[in-house]
Structure formats: structure tokens, C-alpha cells
Design a protein around this nucleic acid. Sequence first.
DNA 1: TTGGCAAACTGGTCTGAACCAGATGCTCGA
DNA 2: TCGAGCATCTGGTTCAGACCAGTTTGCCAA
Lengths: 251, 251
Amino acid sequence: MEKAADTTGASPADTAESRQYLGLRDGIAARIAAGDLKPGDKLPSERQLQGEFALARGTIREALFLLEAEGAIFRRDRSGWYVSPPPVVYDPTRWEGFMSYVEAQGRVPSTHTISTATIPADPLLSDIFARPLGAPLHHIRRLRSVDGRAVLVEKLVVDAAITPGLIEFDLNTSLTAILKRNFGITVARNQISMQPCALTGDEAVDLRQKSGLPGLALQRVSYDGHGRVVEYDHEYWRHDAVQINVDLRVR
Amino acid sequence: MEKAADTTGASPADTAESRQYLGLRDGIAARIAAGDLKPGDKLPSERQLQGEFALARGTIREALFLLEAEGAIFRRDRSGWYVSPPPVVYDPTRWEGFMSYVEAQGRVPSTHTISTATIPADPLLSDIFARPLGAPLHHIRRLRSVDGRAVLVEKLVVDAAITPGLIEFDLNTSLTAILKRNFGITVARNQISMQPCALTGDEAVDLRQKSGLPGLALQRVSYDGHGRVVEYDHEYWRHDAVQINVDLRVR
DNA sequence: TTGGCAAACTGGTCTGAACCAGATGCTCGA
DNA sequence: TCGAGCATCTGGTTCAGACCAGTTTGCCAA
């Protein structure tokens, strides 16, 4: 019940942690660093850790949440906690799709199309695409995975006028490739906005995350060589699954 | 003790939340959206909310954490919870310093220099700056605020050979301006890497955050027109304080 | 061998209680 | 008037126990 004043070491502020969950976090982090726990490995269950460290389950979970926030571990709902694989490096300046750059990093990408539809442009999209209100736009919602783990959901919108029949294609492959091969479309410019966010609602469900876990929201507007808007994309990434790399000239 | 099945509305799955903390989150979010609570306003204390909603304090905190992860509120340690101001928009392609782009958004920026030093290059920095091991480099650590709230800490390194006496200047102003005015240095290219992270250790302390809260880590290498490395920068942002915007040509 | 079901397991949610330590505000004495 | 100091308030940490709802597993029947 009491705090069991931590008198472990000579330097109370250095190694001996004032807060128990920090100590536990360091312990688990050390196991991962030492290679006792490798990416994909399952951690002992919360109740097992409870017995092992003689801490309340809440305290155990506090440490796990911290490791999760640091990207060191992730959870699969009601299954357990697992050691995170390294993140994918993402360079938004490169116009290669997800499939190719994930593969280039020696990982196995996969895509699952959640839904497709052709919908009339609402005011916002009409504005973005510079097309009249009600102009047909393809809406595609996809879930993308790396090594079998869902890492991002995307909602993308494409101008139906320049990509007739797009949603009849197999969208579980590279959209980049489809646009280029079948419609002769390539992207010359991207406008990107991103912000750290909490994954909630649909996104959390699709990523099999508990609602409220941190993520990265990324919006992209892609233009072709004529300055025409080709694609409008909303991506929601697991925060621990991605690292952004950009190389750019300054204006 | 029981879950007190929320019978507030007509549609149990729509508005009425299955989890109490989600309901409370929505309630507070609604107050903010409605303008009852404005940016900077203090929320009722956890114990007050406890009385008001008849929930355990842990449940109250669960809802607050969620709002915090969403960037809607933030905490000041042992002072209270406050409504977040809107984020600053940050465009890494633009070579104007923090001071100018924050001001351009109608906010009040400020900078506090935590420490400065001139230190011989270690292997990593020697490599980055393409300078011999041990070459003198200026290390600067600064805390930057918007409207009085600390939003980022940065650790930056500048080649001392091309900026002699840099750390004698008043570094609480724009470094961009100092480099340009006093050393004739401008940046032509940036290489940026960023990833969502947890703020821990020094960063958390400086930002007066609890260790483990989500943030955004950003590293930047800046080059001048001759391809010479001018500056190496590590920034740690509060996750709710920044939105990244980039406009770029595709390779 | 295989399919389905049930028990066991795991994380998710919630309660309620206690004590700690920094922030804040108020009071009282100099 | 003003500063020191204390009381109070606030979030931070930890404990212990309970029940819920998906996941997993292993057994048994077809």
C-alpha cells in the first residue's frame, strides 16, 4: 500500500526510479534492447508481470502505455502486448506507391480495399478538384499492412472524369501503377499536411486499435504536370509504424 | 458500481456511449465546440468532475487523457487542465525562422536559451558536417514558446568554423537572422526526418510535460548554396502544438 | 481428420481509497 | 506594504478488487 520509499541505489535520481512504472518500463526496454525480446515477440501477460514484479495491475499498465507511446511495443486487443517492428520510412517527395517503398525496405506490404464508391463532389471536394459541385468522384477506402500488421487506413478521392472505371480495377494493388498504366497519369507535385493525432472512430476500428491511441494524420493533394488535381488522400498511420523523411529545397 | 447503461438519448448506439469515459469526453468536447470553454480556459478539477458526473476519478482521467491525445486540452502539472489553443502551422520548406512564421500567424513567439557550448565534433557530427573529428561545433539548446506556452525544445548544432563567436550573440532571437546578417549564411536545402514520439527525460521536463506524453520529433540538416552543412537541428514538439505543411515537387 | 463449442486467458473498463508533491493563494507578522 | 510561511487545492502515483468482452486453445464429438 505504501510507496516503499525507493532506497535501492546510491543515486536516487539516476538509476533508481522514483516512480515504479518508470522502473518497470526501463526493465522491459532493457530486455528488448538486449534482444531477449525481439520484434513480434509477445510480452508476458499483465497479470503475469503483476506477479513477477509485485505491482498493481494499474501500475503495470502505466508502464506498458509508456512503452507503447514510445513505439517500443503495441497491443492486439485482448490478445496481448508485442514488441514493435521497426518503422517504415516514408518519403512523401517520392512518387512511388506504398507497395514499392515498403518492399524496397525488405518488408512485405499488403493492401485491403474496404470500400469503393463514386459520389458527387461536395463543396469541399469540388473546391479542391476545381470541378463543379456534383461532379463524379471515386472514393476509395483502403487498409494497408506491413508484414501482416495494419499500419494505416487511407481515404482517397480521385477525379472520375479522368479515371473512368477506376473502381472496377483490383485496388488491392498499387494505385500509382494503375493510374500510370491505364490512364497515363503521373504526379508532378504533392501538397502535404500532417499532424500528430489520436486515432478514433473508424480509423481506430480498422487499425484494431483502442480508440484514442496516438497516430499521424496526413493529407495529400497530388497534381499532375498540368497542375490538375489528380488525387486527394487522407492517411491515418499508427504512430509507431512510420518515419517521415523529406529532402527539399528551401524557398 | 454497475455500468449504469446510458439511457440519455433515443439512439443507444449513436450518441449514448458504451464506455463512460467516451461519453464524458464527448461532453467536454461539446462544451469546447460550443464555446463554453475557450482556448486557455481551465477545466473543472478532476475531483469536481467526479462529483458532477458521479464517476470514479480514474474514469474521469481516462476521458481527459483521450482529449489530451486528441489535442483538445493540455495539462499544467498540479495546476489543472486547460483548453488547447490552435496549433501553429509549420512549413519546413520555408526558410524563415520560428519567430517570423509564428508571428505571421498572429501569435506571440518567444525563445529562451537553455544552454550554449562549443564542443569538439564526435563521430556522428563529424560525419554530418563533413569536418574532422574534434572540429569545434556550437551546441545550442533552446526552448520556444507560443503565447507563453512552451511548445518545443530544440538542440541545434552549428559549424563553429563558419560562425565564429556565434554563441556570444543574443540567441533568444532569430538564429536565421543572425546567420544571415552576421555571417552571410542562407539555407538552400533542408533534409528533414520526423516521427511521432513520446516526450521523455529532458524534453518532458523542459516542456513541463509529464514524461511519456506524445510529441513529434523532427531532425533537420540544413545546407547552404554550396552544399555545405550549416546547421543540424533536433526539435521536440508538443504534439498538439504543431501542424506540418509541405508543398513539394515529386521526384 | 475436422469442425464446433466451451473453458481459460487476455486486455478493457470501472470502482473507491489513500497518500505524495508541486502550485497556488491567503494570512499574518515585520 | 510586502515577504515568509502555511493551508489548501490540484494533479500524480499506487493499491486491490471486480466484472466485461473478444481471443485463443484445447478437447470432444461427428
